[in-house]
Structures are given as C-alpha cells and as structure tokens.
Write a protein that binds this DNA or RNA. Structure first.
Length: 482
DNA sequence: TTAGGGTTAG
C-alpha cells in the first residue's frame, strides 16, 4: 500500500509534466505554423520519445492516465512525415507508441505504418505490420504493393497481386498501376499481359492513368506495337499519355516516330511540357537531327523552362550528339544551376566529338567546383583518353576511379581501357586486363583485342582472341568479318 | 481518420 502510494505520487508528477508536454502536439500539427513541418515533426517526435522512454523504463503512469494521448490524425501525420523524410528511427518510435496504446490493430493506422516502413525502404517491417492487421482493405494491399515496387521488389509486388486475385479482393486502378510498374521492373511482358487482362476484366482499360501505365509497360518491356495499340484505343489522351508514347519511341530507337508524335500532339491541341521536350530532344539526339533540335530549343526558350536543370542537361546531350559543341557550351554556361549530370553531359559532349583535352579540362573544372565524379564521368574521361591516346592517363584514371572514389569499373570501363591499350599496341597489357575482368562473359573484350591484333599484325594473339570469342559468343563471330 | 495513382537527363 505504501509503495503503491509512492508510485502514484511519482506518477502524477511525471504525468503532469508529460501531459503538459503532450497537449501541444495537437496544436502544433494542426496549426499552420510559420516554422514549418520539420519543426513540428521534431517537436512531436520529442514528445513521443519522452512517452516511449517512460514506457521503456517501466513506469505505469502513462498507461493509467494517458489512455488516448493523441489523435489518430496526429499519429498518421507523424508517420507520413517520417516516411517523407525517411526518418526510420523516428517512425519506429511512433510505431512503438501505437503499440503501447494498443492502436496497432487499427487498419487506418496500420496502413500508415506499412506506408511509413515502405517509404523508409524497410519492407520486412512493412510486411510484418501488414500481416499483423486483423482487417485488410484494398488500400492496405495497394500500400504494400507500392512499397515493394518502389523498393525494387517486383516479384513480391506481383505475388501480392496474385494473392489478391486468389482471395477475391477487388483490385482498383492503383493496384493495376503498381502491378504494371512491377512488370516494367522485371521486364516481364507476359506478366504484363496478365495484368492487362485483369484490367480489361475490371473495365478500366480506357482510363487515362491505367492506359498510360499500360503504354509505358508495353514500351519498356519491348513491344512498341502493343504500346501503339493501347495508345490508339485510348478514348482520351492528355499530355502525360503523349509524353509516355513519345518517350517510349525515343528510348526504343524510333526517333522519327517520336518526333512525328511530338508534332501530332500539338496539332491535337495538347501543349507540350518540359517532360515532352526532354523526350523529343532525346529523339533528336539519337537521330542527330540538329535542325529539329534547334527548333525545339526555341520552343523551350519561349516556354521559359530552359533554365531547368533536366531540360538544360538534355539540351547539352542533344547538342553533343549532334556535334554542336558551341551550342552545348552556351546552354551549359547559361544554366543557373549545374549538377553532376550536367557536368557529365559536357564532358561526354567533348569526349564523344574527339576533343579529349577539352573534356579532361572540364573534368578538372568539375572537381574544382566541388562535384565528385561518378561512373558516368569516368566513362567519358576514358573516352577522352581514347582520343588523346595517352595510355598512362587512361591507366591512371582507371585505377583512380576505384582507389580514390570507390567506384568499381563496369564492363564499359574495361572495354574502353582495353581499346585504348590495344590501339596503342600494348597488347600484353590489354590481354592481361581481360583476365582480371570480373564478368561472366568477356566476349566483347576479346573482340576489341582481336581488332587491335589485326591493327598491329599480331596473328598468334589474334587467333587466341578469336578462339575465345568463338567459345564465349559464337553469334558475335560475324563481327570478325566487318 | 478515410489514405493510394501514369511520363523526364548519362
């Protein structure tokens, strides 16, 4: 009895202080504070931490007095912000708090927890919460699927889709969008066709969102014909629908069709946006269609989106591929903001057009500007060395990318260095490098060496290289006779 | 408390 009174006395002190601290949570999160969401989240989480700490310390007071310390809306808002800021640790605290007050069987909060864990990339936790929920709705499934697909778990996403069908849970358009994204992720057109069949069964094929996702799926999974059919059958097309069709054509080597669609959409009264321009410029780049690219550049300048970094960078790529280095440089210099991709675009433009020294100068400037190179930078840097013919520089950069920057060379980097070594007649080094390539199929590397052997008249090594190509990739042997 | 959604730069 005595000890109980002491506990209660202690508790009441603690409760008073905790509840005084907790009450502003509602105000903070619901009011439109000038100090912004981050501040509100930090404060709300600080309160949550205090309560959780009390609970972990085994204090019974919180449970007795604060049976409903905060509203579901507040907890949902906190989970939403934890997900958006990828604050997994804080999200776990909120989860702990939800469990503490036995709200964890509530589907509404459970769905928010699944979403928070998915946004933070912790799919095991998301799955565990999902499976612990006594009642699931279509939204619960959609959130889990969205988590899986955005974290690169295509198979698991489609497994959810299959389970939903198996359990007779009606999918909705969001379910279909997630499932189609998973098919894109897996590059699995057959699964895509199954999802398409389910979409037709549900009668949502003609909806703009679903139709657009179908076009995207077919295009990215390699069937432009199916993408075209869905596109042509759509009763209504908006700017996104056109954009997807244009980008799919541009990405699959159908640049002329992409540019025709770009003109057609405007004839249909649909105004291009920056994404349309980016896709159309890619088509120009792949076709080396400088004039059309310049025409689109004028439209971009008139629309006012030239200064956007993605648009500017795509312009640099386009001009680079068209060999118009002065125009590429002008765009680069006018960019109000530059990022690593825009620097890479400049280095690539100069390297691809045989200006190795200038490309390496840009590489130096990029580093002076505080940007750390990535694998794309080094690909262009090696391409630049191919043009300067400086073998020692190429070797240096190849070693440096791993040693100084922690970037493992991929197949393209190896091929570029083998090509440089081979052209310069360093055939021993080139052959030696192939033996260090950590890839399963190195047929392309042997092909490069073979070309170098022809150039330098090394018959014995050439026969050896041809033998390797024959064993590894006999289909590629036709390349020997070009 | 009633959420979730389609396209873009190497």
């Amino acid at each position: 009895m005595v000890s109980s009174s002491i506990r209660l006395a202690k508790s009441s002190t603690r409760i008073t202080s905790t509840s005084n601290n907790l009450s502003p949570i509602h105000k903070d999160l619901s009011s439109s504070s000038e100090q912004g969401k981050g501040w509100k989240l930090r404060k709300a989480l600080a309160q949550t931490r205090a309560v959780v700490k009390d609970y972990q310390a085994g204090t019974p007071s919180v449970d007795q007095v604060l049976d409903k310390p905060t509203s579901f809306a507040t907890l949902a808002s906190m989970l939403k912000q934890c997900g958006e800021t990828k604050a997994l640790h804080d999200g776990r605290l909120v989860h702990f708090y939800i469990k503490k007050f036995r709200y964890d069987r509530n589907t509404y909060l459970g769905n928010w927890l699944v979403k928070m864990y998915g946004d933070c990339g912790s799919m095991d936790d998301a799955r565990a919460v999902f499976e612990s929920l006594p009642k699931l709705n279509c939204h619960s499934w959609n959130i889990l699927m969205k988590g899986y697909v955005t974290n690169g778990f295509g198979k698991e996403t489609l497994e959810c889709f299959r389970l939903m069908q198996h359990r007779d849970i009606n999918p909705n358009r969001v379910t279909f969008l997630c499932a189609l994204d998973a098919c894109v992720d897996l590059g699995d057109i057959e699964k895509g066709r199954e999802v398409h069949f389910a979409i037709m069964k549900a009668g949502c094929e003609g909806e703009a969102l679903v139709g657009t996702a179908l076009i995207n799926m077919y295009g990215k999974c390699g069937s432009l014909a199916d993408a075209r059919t869905v596109f042509q059958c759509l009763p209504k097309r908006d700017v996104v629908t056109w954009n997807v069709m244009i980008s799919v054509c541009a990405q699959t080597g159908h640049g002329t069709e992409a540019l025709q669609l770009f003109d057609q959409m405007q004839c249909h009264g649909c105004k291009p946006n920056k994404i349309t321009y980016v896709s159309a410029l890619n088509a120009c780049g792949s076709l080396a269609a400088l004039e059309k690219g310049q025409e689109i550049h004028s439209a971009i300048a008139n629309s006012g989106c030239e200064s956007e970094v993605v648009v500017g960078t795509t312009l640099i790529h386009m001009y680079g591929k068209c060999g118009a280095l002065q125009e590429a440089t002008n765009v680069f210099l006018r960019l109000p903001q530059r990022n690593l991709v825009s620097w890479n675009a400049m280095i690539a433009a100069y390297a691809q057009n045989g200006h190795g020294k200038e490309a390496l100068d840009f590489f130096g400037e990029m580093q002076s500007d505080g940007f750390r190179p990535d694998q794309f930078t080094f690909l262009s840097v090696l391409a630049a060395c191919r043009h300067t013919g400086h073998v020692d520089d190429a070797k240096h950069y190849f070693v440096s990318m791993n040693q100084d920057h922690g970037i493992k060379p991929d197949e393209e980097h190896y091929l570029c260095l083998i090509d440089i070594l081979g052209r310069a007649g360093h055939l021993d080094d080139a052959e030696n490098l192939i033996s260090f390539m950590p890839f399963r199929n190195v047929a392309r590397a042997w092909l490069y060496l073979l070309a170098a052997c022809r150039l330098h008249g090394d018959v014995e090594r050439g026969v050896r290289a041809a033998d390797h190509v024959f064993k590894l990739d006999p289909d590629n042997l036709q390349l020997l006779f070009f």
